[in-house]
């Protein structure tokens, strides 16, 4: 049984310090606290800077005695995060979990992981290989992914529509195109430009 009293308190604590840490945790739905969404800002000075990354959190029954299951829902190019599934390779989310940790501290650790990749213990072999062999390409790819996936998702659809309208596209077309590409501003722009 999840200790919902603790989860509730954690959410409150986390809500107090959103300005300081930029880390938010919110329940995915009002129905249950077992599924949450965490958001972390990309660490400054990394290719993830400026991005806002969403992490799906699922609390196991044994929480806080068992680690929360965390997984990026925003696509990230990082050696320790699966570029496909968003699975995170982080010890504190596995065997090094401690009940003294909280969702916020776990998310902070994930944020720290973004700034300090561990290519020797990779989750995504392709990214890790690139990181070791061709660091510059890795940096640019990571930055591109951040621009592409971690920035758009943070803006509201209306804002993107407004932006496309300002570029000279008709609003209805911009809206439908945006919806068709899943809210991705750049893809929508490409699509609009191509035809």
């Amino acid at each position: 049984m999840i200790d919902f009293a603790r989860v509730q308190k954690e959410l409150q604590e986390c809500g107090k310090d959103v300005e300081g840490s930029g880390i938010r945790v919110a329940p995915k739905s009002d129905a249950t606290l077992a599924r949450l969404v965490g958001t972390i800002p990309g660490p400054i000075g990394t290719p993830y800077e400026g991005g806002v990354f969403q992490i799906d959190i699922t609390l196991p029954d044994g929480y806080p005695f068992e680690p929360p299951k965390m997984q990026f829902s925003t696509k990230v190019w990082h050696p320790n995060i699966s570029s496909q599934s968003g699975a995170i390779c982080l010890d504190i989310l596995k065997d090094q979990w401690s009940p003294a940790l909280t969702l916020k501290t776990a998310l902070l650790s994930v944020q720290a992981l973004l700034s300090a990749p561990e290519p020797d213990d990779p989750q995504d072999a392709v990214v890790a290989k690139q990181y070791l062999k061709d660091y510059q390409t890795f940096i640019s790819t990571a930055r591109y992914w951040t621009e592409t996936f971690a920035k758009t998702s943070s803006r509201g659809i209306e804002e993107k529509v407004q932006k496309l309208v300002e570029m000279g596209f008709p609003e209805a077309q911009a809206r439908t195109t945006l919806e068709s590409v899943g809210g991705d501003e750049n893809l929508a722009l490409e699509k609009l430009c191509s035809g």
Partner: peptide, 9 residues
């Protein structure tokens, strides 16, 4: 601490 860091009781 005044409350348990695990269960917050």
């Amino acid at each position: 601490p005044s409350s348990c860091p695990i269960c917050y009781e």
